[in-house]
Design a protein around this nucleic acid. Sequence first.
DNA 1: AATGAATGAGCCTTCATTCAT
DNA 2: GATGAATGAAGGCTCATTCAT
Lengths: 219, 219, 219, 219
Amino acid sequence: MDQPTQRNSRRKEARPGEILDAALAIFGEKGYAAASIEDIAKRAGVTKGTPYLYFKNKEDLFKALIIASISPTVDGLTEYLKEAQSLPVALQLQGTLHFWKTNVLDTSRSIILKLMMAEASNFPEVARFYQSEVIEKITDQLAALITLGIERGEFRPINVESITHALLAPMIYAVLQKHCFQCHQHPAPEDWLPDSVQVLIRGLLIQPTINTNLPPQHC
Amino acid sequence: MDQPTQRNSRRKEARPGEILDAALAIFGEKGYAAASIEDIAKRAGVTKGTPYLYFKNKEDLFKALIIASISPTVDGLTEYLKEAQSLPVALQLQGTLHFWKTNVLDTSRSIILKLMMAEASNFPEVARFYQSEVIEKITDQLAALITLGIERGEFRPINVESITHALLAPMIYAVLQKHCFQCHQHPAPEDWLPDSVQVLIRGLLIQPTINTNLPPQHC
Amino acid sequence: MDQPTQRNSRRKEARPGEILDAALAIFGEKGYAAASIEDIAKRAGVTKGTPYLYFKNKEDLFKALIIASISPTVDGLTEYLKEAQSLPVALQLQGTLHFWKTNVLDTSRSIILKLMMAEASNFPEVARFYQSEVIEKITDQLAALITLGIERGEFRPINVESITHALLAPMIYAVLQKHCFQCHQHPAPEDWLPDSVQVLIRGLLIQPTINTNLPPQHC
Amino acid sequence: MDQPTQRNSRRKEARPGEILDAALAIFGEKGYAAASIEDIAKRAGVTKGTPYLYFKNKEDLFKALIIASISPTVDGLTEYLKEAQSLPVALQLQGTLHFWKTNVLDTSRSIILKLMMAEASNFPEVARFYQSEVIEKITDQLAALITLGIERGEFRPINVESITHALLAPMIYAVLQKHCFQCHQHPAPEDWLPDSVQVLIRGLLIQPTINTNLPPQHC
DNA sequence: AATGAATGAGCCTTCATTCAT
DNA sequence: GATGAATGAAGGCTCATTCAT
C-alpha cells in the first residue's frame, strides 16, 4: 500500500494508527487478557517492542483504542440530527438507526462495543468513560427525539426513558449479533433492523397506519 | 436435597456444583482469560488442586459452566408457552419476556450471556453450541408465536424473522445493561422492559388501540 | 545433604532459607540489577517460579535478604560487650574487632555490606534501615566504649565521634577488600587488621608503651 | 580550553568528555546494570544514539570512565610526595590524607571507587586494572612512606604492610560513607578524618607526646 | 478426596544496539 | 555528526497444571 521506498521505512506518523488498527482487531477477537502485545505488533507489521514506543503499556493501548473510537461514533450522529431537524421525528429515528448501521455496525470499530461490555468490570473507569461519552450521548439524543415527537403530536405520550432503551436495544444487539454469533446467521442486521425499527415506530405513532408505508430505503 | 451433615456442606456430591457456582461468579466478573483457577477455588472454599478433580482443565470447566446454564434457561420457557397456548399471542409474548426477566435476567446465570458474547471467538464450538441450544431455541419459540399471531389475525402480516430479532434485542440488551453498565443507571430493565414490549406489540397489532390497556403486571 | 527421600522433596520450611542463601550469593556477586531470579532459583536448586512462592517479588527478596542478615550481625556484639564489661576498654575494643572478624568478615553474610553500599541509592529506604539497624548500632557501641575508656582514664580525652569512625573504617574496609579486590591480595584482613587495631589503640592510650605487649590472640 | 562558540558547548571535541561526565553521574548513582544509556545520553544533552559514536558499547563506556578517572587520582599524589620529601614522615602522611580528601573525596570522581567495588565481580579485568593502577599505587606510596618513617627513626618498627592498610582504610571508608550513607550523617569525613589520622600517627610514633600538638590544619 | 509445593510455558516490559535519514 | 524509530534478547512475574503426601 505504500510507495516502494524501503521495506521498513520509518514512518512515525502512521505507526500509532497502524498499531491501534491492529489492536482493534486482536483485542476485538480475543479480548483484553488473551490478546498479546506481540500478536498486535505482528498484525501491525512491527515487532513486539514497537508498540511501547507509542503506548506506555498494554492498558494504555487499550484505553487509547477505546478513546479513539469514541468521537467517530458519536460526533457524526449529532451532526446528522442537526441537519435532519425539520423532518418528521419518525424519519429522524429511522435516520439515526441508519447512521448507526453505516457508521458503527458496518465498521470495524463496532467491535469496541463488544470489547467494552466484556471488559467493563476489569476496567471500571474506562467503562464509565465509555458509558458517559458514547452510551449516554446516544441515549440523550434518542430521548430528545422522542420528546420532540411527543411534543409535535407525532407520538403517543409515553415514558421517554423506556422508549429510549427500546430503541437502543436493537442498535446494541445488532452489533453483538454481528460479532458474537455472526457465523451462518441468516437474518443479518441489515435484514431485520429496518423492519424492527418500523414496528417500534408504528408502536409509537398516534396514527400508525400512515407510517406503514414509509420509504424503506431510509434505514 | 441436603440431608446429612448439612453444616459445612462438605459433601462430595456438592463439590462440582459449588465449583461451578464459583466459576460463574469469577468468569462472569473477569472473563475467561483473566479469571484464575485459584480464585475460583478460593471462592468455592477449596484449594487450587480441587477443581482438577472434577474438571479436566480450565477450558473444560468453562464448557461445563455454559452447558449447566442451558437447560434451566430454555426448558422452563417451553413449558410456560405450552401452558399459555390459549392466551392471545400478545399476552404470550409479554409472558415470554416476563419469563425471561424472572428466570434469566434476575438470575446469577444471566451473566453467562455476557460471558458467551465476550468469549465467542475464543471458543467457537462452545459459542455454536450455545447459539443452537439457547439463542436459536428462543428464536424459534418467538418465531412460532409471531407466526401464530399472524395466523390468528392478531398481528399484521410482517416478516417473522425480523420481528423475532426485534423481540430478542431487548431481552439480550437488558442482560448486558445489567452486567456491563449497571452502576447508577436509573432506567433499570424492570423499568423500561415492559414499556418497550408494549410498544413493540402495539406496532405488531392490527388494532393497536385495544392493546394499550393491557394489564401492565404481565411483564 | 538431605536424606535420600525424593529428588525434589517438598520441604516448605527449608525453602525460604535456601533461596535466601542463593540470593545472597548471586546478589552479592552480580549486584541487584544484574542478578536474575532464575539464576538465584537455579543456585537454590529450584525453578524460576519457586522464589515467588516465598517472596512477593525481586525487591522483596532483596529486602528480606538484608533484614535476615541484620540480627546475626548486631545481636551477638551487644552480648559480647555485656560479658566483657569488666575488661580494660582496650581489650574490649580488640574483642569487638575480633567479633567482627569472626561473625561478619569470615561469614558469607559479609557481602551484604558491599551490596548495601552498591545499592544504597537504588533502595534508599533499605539503606536507611540498614544504616540505623546495623551501622548506627555498631557506631553507638563503639562510641560508648571509647567514652568509657576516657572516663576510666585509659584513653586520652579526644573527640569520641571521630574515633568511632576511625575504628569503624578498618572494619568496613576489611569487608570490602575481601569481596572486591580479594584475588591475590597478600595482606589479607586477618594479617593487617590486628596490627591496625593495635596502632589505633596505642594512639588512644594515655600510656602507650604498656599496651604494645597486649596478647595478640585477642584480635 | 574553550575557544570558539562557547555558548552551547556543542563542539565535537567536547562530546566524549560530556558523555563521560554524564556516565559518571548515572553509573555512580544507579550502578552499571541499572543505568541506561538513554539516561546517560539525556544527562549529556544528546540522544540515545550519540554515545555509540564515541564508545563501542555500554561496557566500553564504563571502562573508559574508569580509566579516565585514574590518572587524575594517582598522578598528583606522586607529585605531592616528591615535593614533600623533606618533611617529617608524619606530616607527609597527613598531607597524603589531605591530598586524598581534596583530590578524590571532594571530587565527583570519588564515586568511581564505590562503582568499582560494586562492579568488581562483574568486570574482573577492569577491577584488576583499577587495583593495580590505583589501589596498589597508593598502597605502594603509603608503604614507602612508612618504611621511610621507620628508617628515619620517627616510627616504631612495625609491620609495614599492615599499617599501609590501616591508613588506606579511612581513605576508602570516607569515600564510601560519603556516597552510600551520606544523608544526615553528622560526623562527615572532614570532621573525623583528621582526628583519625592523628590517632593513627600517634600510634606509630616513637615519641607520641610530641605529635599531639601537630597543627590540625594540615589534614 | 483434598492439599499445596513445585514446575515451566508464556507474556509484559525494558533497553542495548543498529541504521536509515 | 546526530537523530530516533525499530529491533529482539533478556528478565520479571503469573498461572494452569501436576503430583507426592
